[in-house]
Amino acid sequence: MQTRSLRTLVRVSKVGSFAKAAEQLNMTLSALSMQMKALETELGVDLFDRTVRPPRLTPIGRTIVEAATPLLQREDKLLDLCRPTDTLVGHFRIGFVTSAAVRLLPDFLKNAKRDAPQATFAFETGLSKVLQDKVVNGQLDAALVTDAEGVPDALSELVLREEPFVFAAHETLLVDGLTGLLSEQPFFHFMPNTGIGKLIAGEMLKHDRPKESETIVLDNLEAIMECVSAGLGFTLLPAPDVVRYRSAEVKSIQLPKASARKLVLATVRDGALAGREAALAALFSVDNA
Rank of each mutant, 00 (worst) to 15 (best):
M1K: 04
V10D: 03
S13A: 15
S17I: 07
F18E: 08
A19P: 02
A22C: 07
E23T: 14
L25R: 14
M27R: 11
S30C: 02
A31Q: 05
A31M: 03
A31F: 03
S33C: 00
Q35D: 12
K37I: 04
K37V: 06
A38Y: 15
E40A: 10
V45C: 06
V45I: 09
V45R: 09
D46A: 15
D46W: 06
L47N: 13
D49R: 00
T51C: 03
R53W: 14
P55I: 10
R56E: 05
L57M: 11
A68E: 01
L71S: 01
L78N: 03
L81I: 05
P84Q: 15
P84V: 10
T85V: 14
T85M: 15
L88G: 04
G90V: 02
R93E: 07
I94C: 11
F96A: 11
V97Y: 01
T98S: 09
S99G: 01
A100I: 06
A101L: 02
V102N: 01
L104P: 06
L105H: 11
P106K: 14
D107F: 12
L109R: 15
K113L: 12
K113D: 15
K113I: 05
R114E: 15
R114N: 14
F123G: 12
F123Q: 09
S128Y: 08
K129N: 05
V130M: 13
L131V: 14
L131W: 12
V136S: 10
G138L: 08
G138P: 11
D141H: 15
T146F: 07
D147M: 10
G150D: 08
V151M: 01
A154H: 07
L155S: 05
E157V: 11
F167V: 04
T172D: 06
L174E: 02
L178I: 00
T179K: 05
L181C: 10
L182S: 00
L182F: 00
P186R: 09
P186E: 12
N193Y: 06
N193D: 10
N193R: 06
I196Y: 00
G197I: 07
G202L: 03
M204V: 09
H207E: 08
P210A: 15
P210M: 13
S213G: 14
S213T: 15
T215A: 10
V217T: 15
E222H: 13
I224P: 04
E226T: 12
C227T: 06
V228H: 08
V228W: 05
A230N: 02
A239Y: 02
V243G: 02
V243W: 04
S247Y: 00
V250F: 00
V250R: 01
S252W: 10
L255H: 02
P256Q: 01
K257D: 13
S259M: 08
K262Q: 05
R269M: 13
L273H: 06
R276V: 09
R276L: 06
E277H: 11
E277T: 10
A279L: 13
A282R: 14
A282V: 13
D287W: 03
A289K: 04
